[in-house]
């Protein structure tokens, strides 16, 4: 099975978070708990749903990821944008160790004030 992690949005500020190995929620996808087997994914999802029922997070689901350690990143474009921020405003994105990813189509992020 491909590697998966559990994601949601935090209730209080809405920010994207990932389930960590300790059962808490972290903002960096690279620090999330990775499930590489069906059974482990099921357990992780259950933990996530419990947190949703406890009103800590909203909208729990699993996503596929690639790579490992600081280079770990979601596979889909949507989830990469969730993980790293809008591609149009890098300065408003997430400040993770992995930094901002480069777009495959060569779009260069533009900053305010650039002419």
């Amino acid at each position: 099975m491909a590697k998966h992690v559990i994601t949601a949005n935090r209730l209080i500020d809405g920010l994207v978070v990932y389930l960590s190995a300790s059962g808490g929620w972290v903002e960096a996808v690279s620090e999330s708990l990775v499930a590489a087997a069906e059974a482990a994914l099921e357990v992780a999802l259950e933990t996530g749903r419990a947190a949703e029922a406890g009103n800590h997070v909203v909208g729990v689901y699993e996503i596929e990821v690639d790579g490992s350690g600081p280079a770990m990143a979601p596979v889909s474009l949507r989830e990469r944008i969730r993980a790293f921020g809008p591609t149009t405003h890098p300065e408003f994105g997430r400040t993770t160790e992995s930094g901002h990813y480069q777009h495959s189509d060569g779009v260069e992020p533009v900053r305010f004030g650039d002419a």
Binding site: D13, G14, L15, V16, R78, I81
Partner: peptide, 12 residues
Amino acid sequence: LMNGLYLQLHAY
């Protein structure tokens, strides 16, 4: 929603 608050990709 009746007060214009969405939960979007990154945040509210």
